[in-house]
Each structure stands twice: as structure tokens, then as C-alpha cells.
């Protein structure tokens, strides 16, 4: 199958996209989220993750969901402890 000119350029554009770095970021996403929860400077400690999350919506979705889960669990455990 011969690729059209525009398909050829889409392919070249894809080579430049951050998509292929997603796995590298996913590997440390849990670590990154915990750093953020401890209110340390995650962007400085893991700058490549920070840069990637700014441009990759898929990874950013995963990251924000993880952060949400961790925060809400922390809150619910805090509430439980308050009641004890």
C-alpha cells in the first residue's frame, strides 16, 4: 500500500509526538503523584514527567485521576480518624 503525501507527513509528525514517551512516564507516575501529595516540588524532582504531562492529555488524565484517588482516600481516612 502506497502512503499518500499527507499520510507520510502524519507519520513523520507522529515520530515527533510525545506519545512514545508515555510508558517511561507511566513507570514513575505513582512516585510523581506521591511527591505532589507531600507538596514537594514534583516538577523539579522529575522534570521530564512534568514536561510530558503538559503536552500529553492521555497521561495527564491518568495522572489527575490517580491524584484524585489518593487525595480522596486520604480525606476519607482523615475523616474516619476524626470520628474515632
Amino acid at each position: 500500500m502506497e502512503l499518500s503525501d499527507s499520510s507520510l507527513l502524519d507519520l513523520i509528525r507522529f515520530l515527533e509526538s510525545p506519545e512514545l514517551d508515555c510508558e517511561r512516564v507511566f513507570d514513575v507516575l505513582d512516585q510523581y503523584a506521591e511527591i505532589e501529595i507531600r507538596t514537594e516540588d514534583a516538577a523539579r524532582l522529575l522534570p521530564f514527567v512534568h514536561r510530558h504531562l503538559e503536552t500529553c492529555s492521555k497521561c495527564c488524565d491518568e495522572y489527575e485521576a490517580l491524584l484524585d484517588v489518593l487525595i480522596k482516600i486520604q480525606e476519607s481516612e482523615g475523616n474516619k480518624n476524626d470520628r474515632l
Binding site: 507516575l29 505513582d30 506521591e34 489518593l70
Partner: peptide
């Protein structure tokens, strides 16, 4: 590098 449960949620 994180808590096991954080890795699990991820």
C-alpha cells in the same frame, strides 16, 4: 518507589 497501593491504583 511509591507505596504499593499507589502503584496498584495507577
Amino acid at each position: 518507589r511509591s507505596q504499593f497501593t499507589t502503584w496498584v491504583h495507577k
